[in-house]
Simulated scan of single mutants.
Amino acid sequence: MSAERLHHAVEKLKHNGIRMTPQRRAILSYLMETITHPTADEIFKEIEPEYPNMSVATVYNNLKLFKEVGLVRELTYGDVSSRFDGNMSDHYHCICTICGRIVDFDRPPIARLEQEAQQSTGFLISSHRLEFYGTCDLCEKAEH
């Protein structure tokens, strides 16, 4: 994890009048370090041993706060639990249809496609989401 990214996130929270608690820092730090796109429950299970008095509600409340401030992205896929991404750069995802694993697919955003959609529909396009679905390497190996 880049200490600079964490520092920037902490400063953004301070700028928004949000104080930094040890639990909040632990949740934020975990999200900045991981590339696994965890659920709130997974985050709770990872950091709970360090903070045994913390509740899962604390994790949910902080994730909501981080999302509102623009520090994390919530990834929703139908009925499956939301997953959270601490990487706010424009990037795409590959999602395993068997285990639900999500992997970043870092490519430049397709800005031209947004412009075409805007011209074609008259919408003022603010963003887009592109996802690729298939079987991850781990599930593929398990099947053979």
Rank of each mutant, 00 (worst) to 15 (best):
E4C: 02
E4P: 00
R5I: 05
L6M: 13
L6Y: 08
H7N: 10
H8L: 04
A9S: 15
A9Y: 03
V10N: 03
K12P: 01
L13H: 01
L13P: 00
L13N: 01
H15I: 08
G17F: 10
G17T: 10
R19I: 07
R19P: 01
T21A: 04
P22R: 13
Q23D: 02
I27S: 02
L28F: 02
L28P: 01
Y30D: 05
L31R: 06
T34Y: 07
T34Q: 10
I35C: 10
I35P: 05
H37C: 13
H37Y: 12
H37A: 12
P38H: 05
A40T: 11
E42V: 06
E42I: 06
F44M: 02
E46G: 02
E46V: 09
I47D: 00
E48S: 09
P49D: 11
Y51N: 00
P52W: 06
M54P: 00
M54W: 01
T58A: 06
Y60K: 13
N61V: 11
N62A: 05
L63H: 01
K64V: 11
L65S: 04
L65P: 00
E68G: 09
V69S: 09
G70V: 04
R73M: 06
L75A: 02
L75N: 04
L75Q: 02
T76P: 01
T76V: 13
T76C: 05
G78M: 13
D79N: 13
V80Y: 13
S82C: 08
S82M: 08
F84S: 00
G86S: 09
N87K: 10
N87A: 09
N87Y: 10
S89L: 11
S89I: 07
D90W: 00
D90V: 01
H93Q: 08
C94E: 15
C94N: 13
C96R: 05
T97A: 09
T97W: 02
I98A: 05
C99V: 07
C99A: 11
C99Q: 09
G100Q: 03
R101K: 14
R101I: 08
I102M: 15
D104E: 13
D104W: 05
R107G: 05
P108M: 12
P109Q: 12
P109V: 14
I110Y: 06
I110H: 08
R112V: 10
R112Q: 12
E114W: 07
E114D: 14
Q115H: 12
Q115V: 10
E116W: 11
A117P: 00
A117N: 04
S120C: 10
F123R: 07
L124Q: 10
I125C: 06
I125W: 03
I125Q: 02
I125D: 01
S126D: 06
R129W: 07
R129Q: 11
L130T: 15
E131L: 12
E131Y: 07
F132M: 14
G134L: 05
T135M: 14
L138C: 10
C139D: 07
E140M: 15
A142V: 11
A142C: 11
E143N: 15
